[in-house]
């Protein structure tokens, strides 16, 4: 087949793909599950951005006249055993978990995508070595790796937690992307690009990447849900962020003991916040899966 013929076929194929993407986007925006999930996520993103303006009190403010007081008109979510406003701490804790989970997932997605693209495109020994490494890392539970890394590096900071979670997510995303690339790399538009003597980065990132975006986007949302739980769990275990910070997982760690004293609100509201954020992301993920038919 001549270069011209291949190019014509590739152009036609690209046009069809663009149309499919456009139709899918329309479907996504009409999907009720997506809209509910996006609304919930949007709520938390607003809290993360404008939390300082919305929260009625500071994260560290203590009111010794109202210690372990249940939900009331003055304190909608009640106060904890330190006399701190649970509502304010939930609102102010949003930014950290939202930023951390998005950043960690983005980090893992970028690294995993790059790895998956390369492995799927080059194949051969490179692919084999990368896949064995990915399998080895994937065999260890996320939390164990995260705890080991944090302990080994003797650090406890949001940045370190983000890097560790991003690293742990990289293999899974890499594997998904590789599988998609293996199929794509055999198609005409890739052969045409090769015939046009395009450079490898161009083929990977300009030709193949746009066509494997749906599974990447779905994988991103799935991982985002995991990241929220991982960060909350690490914070609960005292390995994520500083004790005493208005982080949801940390708040649960600080207050769960009060449940035995019937002070449920200091634990319940941060837990509900984690659940609602994770559910919002999962709803988005489910709707994308449905639309993309993956």
């Amino acid at each position: 087949m001549s270069v011209e013929k291949l190019s014509a076929l590739a152009e036609k194929s690209n046009a069809e793909r663009k149309q499919i993407r456009s139709e899918r986007m329309q479907l996504v925006l009409r999907n009720k599950t997506f809209l509910v999930g996006a609304s919930m996520l949007g709520f938390w993103v607003i809290m993360a951005i404008f939390g300082n303006l919305i929260a009625p009190r500071g994260a560290g403010d203590q009111d010794f006249e109202f210690v372990s007081v249940g939900p009331s008109l003055k304190y909608w979510f009640g106060t904890d055993a330190n006399g701190q406003d649970v509502l304010s701490r939930v609102i102010l804790g949003t930014r950290l978990i939202v930023v951390m989970s998005f950043t960690a997932t983005a980090l893992g997605t970028i690294a995993g995508t790059a790895l998956g693209l390369a492995a799927g495109y080059f194949k051969g020994k490179f692919d084999m070595i990368v896949m064995r490494l990915i399998e080895a890392i994937s065999a260890i539970p996320v939390l164990i790796i995260a705890l080991l890394a944090i302990a080994a590096l003797e650090g406890r900071s949001p940045t370190l937690t983000v890097i560790v979670i991003g690293f742990v997510f990289t293999p899974n995303i890499g594997r998904t992307v590789r599988a998609a690339v293996l199929g794509e790399s055999e198609l005409e538009y890739v052969a045409a690009a090769r015939l046009r003597t395009e450079r490898t980065p161009h083929i990977l990132f300009r030709e193949i990447l746009p066509n494997v975006l749906p599974p990447i986007i779905v994988e991103f949302t799935v991982r985002l849900g995991y990241a929220i739980f991982a960060i909350a769990t690490l914070s609960f275990l005292g390995a994520g962020v500083e004790y005493g910070s208005p982080n949801w997982g940390t708040q649960i760690a600080e207050n769960w003991g009060s449940i035995y004293s019937n002070v449920w609100w200091a634990t319940a509201f941060p837990a509900l916040a984690i659940a609602s954020l994770a559910v919002s992301v999962n709803l988005i993920s489910d709707s994308l899966l449905e639309v993309f038919e993956i």
């Binding site: 560290g60 004790y243 600080e254 003991g257």
Partner: peptide
């Protein structure tokens, strides 16, 4: 170190 009362005291010092 982590103990019910010390946790609370540490937060008092912080705030």
């Amino acid at each position: 170190w982590a103990r019910d009362d010390i946790n609370k005291y540490a937060k008092l010092i912080k705030t």
